[in-house]
């Protein structure tokens, strides 16, 4: 079937979810398949492209690479926070929060602090639900402090997003009961889960995202043996071993620190090599 405009729009929209470096080939594949689909059912066929694109994004090694360095991650969150603050100021404020029709700039910190208190309640529960984290690795206090500050900044920069979500609940509740609460709570949960997963997937020394994940072993071919994934710090600080299925002997992800004798296996710390996350054996 020749692609009609609704199908083309669906595929184009779904392609935005695919990683940029694979988008053109992904779109070409779906368009060529669409040519063979009978007109009836072609829309349903195209809707499946969203699941495929999401799978590709989740499993692409390049996914999330643009947030590899801690500074770029914080810059992204700061941009998101700025946009959310702008939305919070522009939209009409709930009657109970302020006497004016719009939230004033000076009210924003108070709103964010209120959200921070709510986060303080949510975070331990989410952390508990996510299961065990990497075992504590004996780090110098400076590294521990830097890691803690990085986590605190990420959580603080998420508060404007939470505030906008709270406003959305207050505005939409009279129109659609329950649904906004559930959606916003799910979004908050996803955002905090991402913060914690991002923290876990970073090198505890340099805070860069770990690269080159390698699958080790197979669920069907091991018996009482560890199997899962191993990621590497692109600067050669160590390896994170995460079991695919936690067991009594491999419950927590393990951080394996590499000493200086391994340095020659990794790229020198230059911007281009770090961005690519290339490892030279």
């Amino acid at each position: 079937m020749k692609a009609q405009w609704p199908q083309s729009i669906i595929l184009r929209a779904a392609s935005l979810l695919a990683p940029g470096d694979q988008r053109a080939e992904w779109l070409a594949g779906w368009r060529s398949e669409l040519w063979y689909i009978p007109r009836r059912g072609s829309t349903g066929f195209c809707l499946g492209a969203f699941q495929d694109a999401l799978w590709l994004r989740r499993n692409s090694p390049s996914a999330g690479r643009h947030l590899e360095s801690p500074l770029s991650c914080l810059a992204f969150l700061a941009l998101l926070a700025a946009v959310c603050n702008l939305v919070a100021v522009c939209l009409p404020a709930p009657d109970t929060m302020t006497s004016s029709s719009h939230l004033r700039l000076r009210d924003l910190p108070a709103g964010c602090i209120a959200m921070l208190l709510l986060s303080g309640l949510m975070l331990p529960a989410i952390r508990l639900a996510m299961g065990p984290h990497a075992s504590r690795y004996p780090l110098p206090w400076r590294n521990r402090l830097r890691r803690g500050i990085f986590l605190a900044l990420k959580i603080a920069l998420l508060q404007p997003l939470m505030l906008v979500g709270f406003f959305a609940v207050v505005w939409l509740q009279p129109v659609v009961p329950m649904a906004p609460q559930l959606v916003v709570f799910a979004l908050w949960f996803r955002a905090f889960r991402w913060v914690l997963i991002d923290q876990r997937d970073r090198c505890p020394v340099c805070l860069r995202l770990l690269t080159a994940p390698v699958r080790i072993g197979s669920a069907s071919q091991t018996f009482l043996e560890w199997y899962g994934a191993e990621s590497t710090c692109s600067r050669g600080h160590g390896l994170l071993q995460t079991a695919e299925m936690p067991a009594s002997y491999s419950g927590k992800p393990e951080w394996l620190a590499l000493d200086d004798s391994w340095k020659s296996l990794f790229c020198p710390a230059g911007p281009s090599s770090e961005a690519a996350g290339v490892r030279h054996p």
Binding site: F45, L47, G48, F50, Q51, D52, W55, L56, N59
Partner: peptide
Amino acid sequence: MEVTGLASGTVYPALRR
């Protein structure tokens, strides 16, 4: 998809996997 009766959103990600 035709022979298995599965939806495109199931088949294509499964093929990639």
